[in-house]
Design a protein around this nucleic acid. Structure first.
Lengths: 221, 221
DNA sequence: ACATCATTCAAGAGATAGTTTGAACGTATA
DNA sequence: TATACGTTCAAACTATCTCTTGAATGATGT
């Protein structure tokens, strides 16, 4: 049998260490730049907007994980990918992210689609108008995110349930949809589908994080 | 809003979020078990030695990253991989780790050393050769895992039963054993015992999760 | 209703990671 | 030798992650 418990754990730890090295936005960005060729710390710091010390530390972390090699050339230290396979790793990671995170796939697929040219609804007064029954506010994020906090009076309708639940809406009332925020297009998609079904629908500006940051009331549970 | 100052940054952040979900030893181990099929929290906690609460939290983290789906069945919550592509992601991650981290290579070498130095059998053609009677394929995982899906034509012989069932084998036919995957040593152990008993035996490359991910036929029940 | 079991939640202590700051190190040019 | 510049180091603060504990939730069976 897998008398492997010990060594297996060690292998899992190594895999996790490599994954953890990829687990920071700045390091992903650095790798993306390095995929195009050797770069100095200074060049990378400039490209990413990081401080030199910060960039240097992230690069060393990537090197410790075996993802980068470094060599000295004059006063510069040049970093490069340790292996072409790392490009493949990034590529598979991106595929997984695109399959699994609605945000990414929709961002890439429909960003320039012009589906949402119309003006979004502002945050102010939305709660009062919702509670007065003048508009229906729907939260199209996954239900777990709704549970963690949502606009008071909003109804949770994850995007995948939307088509099945069109009957719940009053055709005479305008629908306002919102989602995660800056880069999330769930609400854009929801508005497009609602309009295609004949409803009056608009998108709320930004999303939940901005709502929260604006100090507006948040309901939960 | 969905219009971004920098959509690239958002993409990097999503990639990093997925990678970070893989960036912990326990979560890698959980994924490795889930690659075999659906499992309850209790089963995973037992398999990994984690407390229920801890296992639950790691599983929820993986689900939030889009790597797992969960469904309720009676009093159990069953988790499974959200996508077969995740097996590929793990596989590429493993390749990178093995290429780049000396310790991984050393660990693997130490474990397979002397027991299974010889080349494993590839997946291709294995089904035809098995059905033509040219080889005997045995599945040495526990029977529950066999029932959830196995290589067509394979015989279920959990490792504990192997010694008692040696008489079932034709000494003239080569035996190919497989188990859970790259880190599972069930098949290595089986091959070692079969060879010690005078049979011609080899290991199949990887295991069931990779077989499934390769789109090859899977028998069940 | 009640008890039971699997799972999740909530809160807190302890550990780890990220960023900034300023100083130290190495290499090149004056 | 002295100076400039790219890079790294060290320390400190903050934020985030991990794990444990004990209670709450949800489904099942008596």
């Amino acid at each position: 049998m897998c008398k492997s418990t010990d060594p297996k754990r060690a292998l899992f730890a190594e895999l996790a260490a490599v994954a953890r090295a990829l687990g920071h936005e700045h390091r992903v960005e650095l790798l993306e730049h390095l995929a195009q060729g050797e770069r100095s710390v200074e060049a990378l710091a400039r490209l990413t907007g990081l401080s030199m010390a910060n960039a240097s530390q992230h690069l060393q972390q990537l090197r410790r994980a075996g993802l980068l090699d470094a060599r000295r050339d004059g006063k510069f230290v040049l970093y490069r990918l340790a292996d072409d396979g790392i490009v493949q790793l990034m590529s598979v990671l991106r595929q997984t992210a695109e399959r699994n995170i609605a945000t990414v796939g929709m961002l890439l697929a429909r960003y320039f689609d012009g589906r949402d040219g119309l003006d979004p609804v502002g945050r102010t007064d939305l709660v009062e108008r919702a509670q007065a029954g003048l508009v229906t506010v729907i939260d199209v994020r996954p239900r777990e995110e709704f549970d963690l906090g949502h606009v008071p009076g909003a109804v949770s309708i994850p995007l995948e349930e939307l088509d099945a639940r069109l009957a719940e809406f009053d055709p005479a009332t305008e629908i306002v949809a919102y989602c995660r925020g800056a880069y999330c297009l769930l609400a854009v998609e929801a508005v497009a589908r609602l309009r295609a079904s004949g409803f009056s629908a608009r998108r709320m500006e930004d999303g939940m994080p901005e709502w929260r940051a604006a100090g507006l009331p948040v309901a939960s549970g």
